[in-house]
Design a binder for these strands. Sequence first.
DNA 1: CATTCGTGGCG
DNA 2: TCGCCAAGAAT
Length: 397
Amino acid sequence: MGETKKKRYRARDSADGRYGPKQVSSYKASAFDLAVSLVEVAPALRQTLLTWYGEQGRDLPWRRSRDPYAIWISEIMLQQTQVKTVLPYYQRWLETFPTVAALAKADQQTVLKAWEGLGYYARARNLHKTAQLIVERHGGVFPEDFEDAIALPGIGRTTAGGILSAAYNRPVAILDGNVKRVLARLVALPKPPAKAMNELWQLSEQVLDPQQPRDFNQAIMDLGATLCTRHRPACMLCPWQDHCVAYRQNLQSQIPMTETKAPLPHKQIGVAVIYGDDGRILIDRRKQEGLLGGLWEFPGGKIEPNESFETCVKREIKEELGIDIEVNDRLITVNHAYSHFKVTLNVFNCTHLSGEPKTIECDEVKWVTLDEIDSYPFPKANGQIIDAIKERAQQSS
DNA sequence: CATTCGTGGCG
DNA sequence: TCGCCAAGAAT
């Protein structure tokens, strides 16, 4: 243990925000823990931040509400998702499911359809499940107790803190991407935030204003979102400039540090758009767990080494659905990047030859018309396929 | 504790 | 074009 491990982190280049030559920094894992505390300066930090927030805070729809349900929905939607993306979904969601009870009694397909395009679909499945749990356990009202809240599916430490502070003004710290970046700069954190979660949680708890936790948590997120941004932070406007170690040392552009990551693997997928005798198209619903769980798709699968697209598509359809098809012309090729890999969807028009489709590797199979297809929730990459199918149908009519 | 989960926007 | 990452959680 006594030896010093060297690790390489990537620091941002200060001039143009791009990633410059890798800088190597070494650290000793134990040094930081006890060295940094914000307890002394916390009162000053709270006062300056809350004053700034009163003048410059964002006006966001969920801040106009104190309905725990509406705030809960916003917190889930905002996980790893930018405010601008969430806004239209948030409005529509509250119209479709105005209360916990309304969400609890909806069917999952309706819920997934309302979420379609937002990504991380486990959030929608957990939202649905949690609504039912809140009806069962908490009389239809989002719990005020931290342990009760964090026990619910899809609600971790940060989201629980966000909801409880915003809805009930309870003094629970948060640690989202904004807060991590702000605190990392404030203390000039000498390692990537992922390697310092304990320290960052401590700092967040230390600075939190126990008198005004609601406004404080919103304020520190606004600081990260509008001034203490990833690229070109507006330090000259920052209420914490006097206390910021990174600013003092001119390290804003190099903190937070990031670890270098391996490039994403790329998969080639063969996809079948299968037409039945009556012209309807075969779709299947993916299993609940895993990637895109519960959503519909056009069946297909990964191409094996030295396999042709045609062979791949026929084989996958036989394995997954137990039917035989004829593979015809290529409909479209779709490239798409997920969070941990990339895919190319090689989509082929196919004809059903024989066999009744079975749910071998999926939860449900269905023949649908082009009019019906819009009512099913599909992943984003499938949108291009559906468009191409419709386009082709128009041309041939 | 590292990996698995979408999608869009930015430099 | 491409990597990075945004109001993270679950496993």
